[in-house]
Write a protein that binds this DNA or RNA. Structure first.
Length: 188
DNA sequence: TATGAGATCAACT
DNA sequence: GTTGATCTCATAC
């Protein structure tokens, strides 16, 4: 399984996002298989970068292949992968993993032994992996991150994104068909 | 099963 | 002062 390099992310966010489904994400050796992501583009009213650069979203305006971490609803951290060329300000939100590595650590951090509740949602996922604002701006192709390409094709399904009010109809949510670890099922 | 409130903070108006 | 790329728990059906 080849590791993903920065060049992998240096393409349209709509190419990168579906290819991340089935890839493996580890943070300090803890993580699993990506089963759900969402694409955000700077022309998209729902994206943080839509209204231009601010101190919070500055990483989105930098080069591809870096982590953008922000606080959501004052409580949770959400992890994004920056895509496309510097300045295009597009990113993929990582929404759910199928936990495979470091189960015991994730169970302790999340306070549950139910594998379906460990990483099924952007806030849960960051809590399970231990990702916080401290990781904002880190490169994705070196420690403590490790990203491995999927080793076979998998069935990817698209649908509308979750938890947003603007441009909610755009089908820019991608998931692994039939996975038990999605934050919400996809409608046919 | 489904709906609603609360937690808690930084960007933005 | 309002809003938001969320989650959990409580209460109701």
């Amino acid at each position: 399984m080849p590791r993903l390099r920065k060049s992998f992310f240096n393409r349209s966010v709509h190419e990168v996002a579906p290819e991340l489904i089935g890839a493996t994400l580890l943070f300090r050796g803890v993580g699993g298989i990506i089963v759900e992501v969402e694409a955000y583009h700077h022309t998209d009213p729902a994206a943080h970068s839509y209204r231009g650069e601010t101190p919070r979203n500055a990483v989105m305006f930098g080069p591809a292949g870096y982590a953008y971490v922000y606080r959501s609803y004052g409580i949770h951290w959400c992890l994004n992968f920056v895509c496309e060329r510097a300045g295009s300000a597009s990113a993929v939100l990582i929404r759910a993993l199928e936990p495979t590595e470091g189960l015991a650590v994730m169970q302790r951090r999340r306070g549950t032994a139910d594998a379906r509740l460990l990483c099924s949602g952007p806030g849960r996922l960051t809590e399970a992996l231990g990702v916080t604002h401290a990781q904002n701006g880190l490169a994705l192709d070196q420690a403590p991150f490790e990203l491995r390409a999927r080793n076979s094709d998998c069935e990817v399904i698209a649908g509308p994104r979750i938890g947003i009010t603007k441009a909610a109809e755009l089908p820019w949510r991608y998931g692994l068909t039939g996975s038990r670890f999605l934050s919400k099922p996809f409608r046919e």
